[in-house]
Amino acid sequence: MPNTPFAAGALVLALHALPAGAQEVGGAAPAEPSSREIADRVQADVDETSLRWLGITRVRYSIPLEFSAGGGAVLARMPAGYDCTTFCEYRGFVAQIEPGSAGGQLGIGYARVIATPKPRSAFLNNVYVGWSARAVLVRTWGASELDPARQTLAGFEGQFALPRLSFNLGVLRRISSAHEGADRYVYTAGIGWGF
């Protein structure tokens, strides 16, 4: 996993020896650890944490970006020994950049997501369920349906993700200048895949 400190890796190796030792076939059986030893190992396993970052991607149709593809990362702290083969909960900072056919978006915020990276992948490939709350900066261009077509907006976006779909809702406030009568606020909504 990227960004896993060396010390945490050493702990993982030490902890790995526990069940592996118990699974050895033949030879002298290792002494059974006492309840106190087991409790200490469990506590160490829970408390030794590391920061991990993993890539996130999404494609979606939304107002005002229309068709867009985003890439970014989630940075989360979790027990260092977690292998995340089945699933892990990633809880922490999220940042994503997302160019689209009618605009681009930069978002940063907080995310909680249950997901699994594929082996040797630095991306959260299987997102099971999750949500995020992000502060976003949007610049529209070209084919934008907004009036005026080119403007800069800032606001908030909430996202909820299921295994196949991801939904988002938000509100943006125009921060660039525009002609009189132009809408100041834009409600955003979108549907897509990924996180």
Binding site: A22, V42, D45, G81, Y82, T85, T86, F87, C88, I114
Partner: peptide, 28 residues
């Protein structure tokens, strides 16, 4: 309590201290 899953389950499917099947990418 965690998102959708329980914290104890999340720990038990990830901890190197827990003997489980399937475990690891190959067995998965």
């Amino acid at each position: 309590r965690m998102l959708f899953f329980d914290g104890f389950e999340t720990w038990s499917v990830n901890s190197p201290l827990v003997s489980r099947s399937p475990s690891g990418p190959e067995e998965m």
